[in-house]
Design a protein around this nucleic acid. Structure first.
Lengths: 206, 206, 206, 206
DNA sequence: CATGAATGAGCCTTCATTCAT
DNA sequence: CATGAATGAAGGCTCATTCAT
């Protein structure tokens, strides 16, 4: 049973969250273009229809805003691959879908991934980033492992390495591909596709 | 034939270079502790026997100093492994030596590697970092390839991937191990050793 | 003769005043803990069951709220001593009652007195505080004088100084005792009692 | 034996201190006009021939600057009266000199005293002000006691109260006189003179 | 009546850089 | 050569106040 007051309160919370989401979206845009250290809250606000005071109204401080942003983004990232897992009926199909997914997001969301690597680096120095970054990193690792696990199942093989190892190598590959793609290399995406399939078949499952 | 003037000029250049080297060494120390974005030139100078005005005398600006620093460091890094290549007579010995070398530097130079990943991330945003970072990255890739190539030779196998791919996966592995090591994980170094050998035998050569 | 409209209007005014009183009470609490300069209206509102917009509905601005608060408080303060005057039949009884009253309020209302001294200081800079502070100061001076006057009467003496002088010295004594009490001194209250009686007998009446 | 380096270093320190003194002087001027809470460092700097960055170069933060200012000022204050003590050969002469000194500084340095009371009030809320304010307060109390002690000696009497009590009453008197003087009262200074002598002869010594 | 979203002026502080000595 | 005084742009953050709902 909900009272009228409950509904009002609920609506306000929703509105508040919605605005946070909206501001984070704009912030993500600006952050991904300029990088964490070079982006001020004022600058973020300017790419928004709100004042910079508003940012402080919705987020306690810069760290909270940034973490909200990246968490929001990575949540989407992780989900993307679960559909691929669910939709693939063969090992090869999964490998192809996964490789294509990586390449697609490397191409389409390059700046956001760049921001992620920036923030992950910052977290090595900035204590306050640690918890959130670690959590996101964990969810990425689990996501990769769902791929590997399913690939092993479909191909009747066994994973030959830990999930940490699997994530490390795929991440290394993706990071380099991103770098090359951003540098204008035309081969980056193709190499990423090929590399991902190679890793899947040679490193992770034997 | 060198004139007296030449010798004087030469001596001055050497002295200039020597002082740059000396300043960069102190800077590297400070940078590796605090990270690029959080280190001011004042702070760098304080860990030096010189004033902070002197830094500007020897380096045009912060960027030039930072790049000089990291170039100086990575040169040392790369050389380290060439001795391993030269000293190993068997594939297994090379693998063991390489794995141990990675683990050793991950342990002993953790902060410097952390700085490297910081700067490499920055280079994705800061145009002026690009050339130097790219050059260093290239030298690291070539270093890795010398290992792989020699490993293939000693084991009578063929590399199954490009040097870019090899570098990407080893770098991913190293980066994650560094992260875990810095977080206090006792398993990080062992996993790095095992992972490196696994990559060498399964991914890179078949 | 009052019309219905009058009664309604009257009721509204009362309700308005009542709400002001209620808000001021909460504000006084917060102000006395943090001091004038460090207390924001948001913070005041949070210690209230109302929103911070409501504060602006009932008070023109921060100054009006603060003045309303302190006026409300000091009115209570002043009354406290009149009962002592009325109840004391001998000079010594009055002196004892007065000394005890000072010590009691110094102990029980320390934070509120602290706030008063804060606001009185502010009034030296903030024009808008002046009138109210002056009025309160006057009422305190008159209150002290009623004590002195009655003490003189009961003891068959004559006051030897002006009311301004009497107020000044008692206030100086009280202010210092408050400071010492807030600093954790155990002797502060006893010294205040003794000091008050000393002043009463030596300075003010001879 | 001093080396050349010592002399250079000494000269630099002196120069640094001299500039601090100079900046503090300007700051004192601005602070005393606007009060602590209403004065920004920018505003202070504007009444100076230096930029506001310079203030931060010479003082760690606002608190350090403010405390440096008030300490500098009160040191002068305290000394003022020691000459009076030394120069007075009779109790009456001392009383007259002291009363005149109080009145003179109340007139001439009214704004600075106002600032002092402001800061002393702030110290009740602002932890960081405490130590310095307490120290200054102590030096004032000792100064007052030197007067009282000498007065007792010259008049062949004994002090009838503690130094804390003496300071409290004189301070209360001075504070009120300052308030009235700043409010434009013509009688304030005369009353201060008379009050001080009255306190000296009736309250403090009998 | 009451709310709380939104604002923007203003504050303290940091810092790369310049330059006279 | 080397210093460190001085600068001023820029950043994160606070807060009284306004106003649509």
């Amino acid at each position: 049973m909900t009272t009228a007051a409950d509904r009002v309160s609920r609506r306000q919370v929703d509105k508040f969250e919605e605005r946070r989401r909206q501001l984070a979206e704009g912030a993500l845009q600006t952050l991904s273009e300029r990088g964490y250290a070079r982006t001020s809250l004022r600058e973020i606000a300017q790419n928004t229809e709100f004042s910079h005071g508003t940012l402080h109204y919705y987020f306690r401080d810069k760290v909270e805003l940034i973490m909200y942003c990246v968490r929001q983004y990575k949540a989407v990232c992780v989900q993307r691959y679960d559909a691929i897992v669910a939709d693939s009926a063969t090992a090869d199909g999964l490998a192809r879908g996964f490789a294509e997914g990586l390449a697609a997001t490397c191409r389409d969301d390059a700046l956001l991934h760049r921001l992620w690597y920036d923030l992950r680096s910052q977290s090595l120095f900035e204590e306050s980033f640690r918890p959130d970054v670690a959590e996101i990193d964990g969810s990425l690792e689990r996501m990769i492992w769902r791929i590997v696990d399913r690939y092993a199942e479909l191909s009747g093989q066994e994973p030959t390495c830990s999930s940490a190892m699997a994530y490390a190598t795929f991440d290394g590959l993706f990071q380099q591909s991103l770098l090359r793609h951003l540098s204008g290399s035309d081969l980056a995406l193709d190499d990423l596709r090929a590399g991902a399939r190679h890793l899947l078949s040679h490193v992770v499952c034997a």
